[in-house]
Nucleic acid binder design. Structure first.
Length: 272
DNA sequence: ATATGAGCCTGTATGC
DNA sequence: TGCATACAGGCTCATA
């Protein structure tokens, strides 16, 4: 399932294929995504040229030459491929963005948790983006931010960390990994963690995400990069999905527990 | 205000 | 072997 590193990998992968290209046609085969794709979207983007391929949180932002932006979320199972114009659509190939230059950007999403919107500038004010917290790899995110924001919070630190208003792009996998790297118990109330430990957590979040982007994105069940090659970060996960196995740091036995409705693996011995 | 739970959806894995 | 059920997950909305 695409988390931020996968989305960033996808962004980098599609950029050379779509940047500066002219949209010949947008084809929507299945409008029932996370939200219904709005009627008339096809005609609003047809003929436009792509001037930027960006990302905010896990949203891909394809900006057009009229300053409007296509906002695409890959959801849980979505992926983008670049295919030749006459390539037959496969099951769950819901959207095509065809370019006059020949290639087609194709969106596939079996579970349809993904979404497609089109917004006028400034895109940052779109309701989906307006309330989001800082980018984890941006200048506004660090341990001090986490510490200050955690004041008075009684929710588990893992839930706090996965809250988009705290920081974006940290889903279950990377929250689990970052907390282990920082030696913090995922169930600890967010407001009861020292500033110094939040410094460690902030650094852990950045380290884990950067390593994953470097590796080309984690592959779990259904993510593969834009060229169809799977990422390979999953081999490097230290705790996620490893309950019952030995902790790589202290040798203790990793446990799993439900925190905020999410399965959470952790080491009861070196995470406090 | 924060915190928790439901619901969306379907492929995959498990249990009988 | 086949079928039924549980589970996974990001995100928003509703409720306490």
């Amino acid at each position: 399932m695409p988390e931020l590193p996968e989305v960033e990998t996808t962004r980098r992968g599609i950029t050379p294929h779509v940047m500066h290209r002219h949209i010949a046609a947008l084809t929507v085969r299945e409008r029932r995504l996370r939200w219904p794709v709005s009627d008339g979207l096809e005609s609003r983007v047809s003929g436009r040229r792509v001037v930027d391929v960006g990302r905010r949180a896990k949203y891909l932002l394809i900006t057009l030459d009229d300053d409007s932006t296509l906002i695409l979320h890959l959801g849980m199972s979505g992926s983008l491929r670049v295919v030749a114009r006459d390539t037959a659509p496969q099951p769950h190939d819901h959207v095509d963005l065809a370019f006059t230059e020949g290639a087609v950007l194709r969106f596939n999403d079996p579970r349809r948790f993904g979404s497609l919107h089109h917004a006028a500038a400034p895109v940052a004010q779109h309701p989906l983006l307006a309330g989001l917290g800082p980018e984890p790899l941006g200048a506004d995110f660090d341990g001090d931010w986490l510490y200050e924001r955690a004041r008075g919070r009684r929710a588990p630190v893992k839930s706090f960390l996965m809250d988009n208003r705290t920081v974006v792009g940290v889903g279950n996998i990377y929250a689990t990994e970052a907390l282990h790297l920082a030696g913090i118990h995922p169930g600890r109330p967010a407001g009861r963690i020292a500033r110094k430990r939040y410094h460690a957590l902030g650094e852990a979040v950045v380290a884990v995400l950067e390593a994953a982007i470097e590796a080309g994105g984690t592959t779990l069940r259904d993510f593969s990069d834009v060229n169809g090659r799977p990422g390979y970060f999953s081999q490097r996960l230290d705790v996620y999905g490893r309950a019952g196995a030995p902790c790589r740091r202290c040798g203790g036995t990793l446990r799993a527990r439900l925190i905020g409705q999410r399965t959470t693996a952790f080491c009861p011995r070196c995470q406090r």
